[in-house]
Amino acid sequence: MLGVMDFRIEQWRAWAPGLESKDDWRTWCEAPVRVADGQQQPDVSFLPAMQRRRLSRLARMLFQVAWPLAEAYPALPLIFASRHGETPRTLAILNDLARDEPLSPTQFSLSVHNAIIGQWSILRGDTSEMTAVAAAGDGLEHAMLEASMLLGEGAPAVLLVIAEEAPPAVYAPYVDDVPFPYAVALLLTPGDDWHLQLGSGAGQTAAWPHPLNLLRALCCGQPTLVHHWNNRQWIWSHNKA
């Protein structure tokens, strides 16, 4: 039945400015605050310089959180979810257009929503199925739906990454769902540790972007998590405490 998913979260990793290690995240999860963005770049020094030069910060965030989780899997399907994607690149292109200047081929080719998973596929040499999703407040759950279908089809593991870059200053007044840039990666395998169910009903929307609420549940061993968005009610429950 659509709307009921069972899976296991084998491993997770996350990145935000100043929050890199599991301990950093445990501290944040106990007392969540809006962290300052000092334009720190996620460390992707495991990639040769020629390979990482075209990666935006958003792409670096994905590589930083996802790469170690993929080590054991030469072929690993990937679901990438982001509501805003490579907005800074699109804005740079729009600025060039407004000034009547020629467009940067690099910015243009990497501004599309699936550019990052394309770069991931090339740099890992992995041609597994990869999907880029753009969804609003429950993008995590829609990405989970995609991942569950792949697991249902027999994939031994699926990598899910959800990430948002800080909006460029001109867009900031219109974007209220990115308190700071963040990326969360989940390595999902078949199992019934976690149960995610879709129902309907309105309720209070979450204080933090939902991937960060999930991290808090993972860090604190919280057994259930209810998330409302657009009259959809998602209930996450952890079966094994």
């Binding site: 020629p102 940067s104 081929p105 690099t106």
Partner: peptide, 16 residues
């Protein structure tokens, strides 16, 4: 070790 996208980008940079 530059590639075809670099060729376009470099051409543009030289023109500008």
């Amino acid at each position: 070790g530059l590639d075809s996208v670099d060729a376009l980008e470099l051409g543009l940079a030289i023109q500008k």
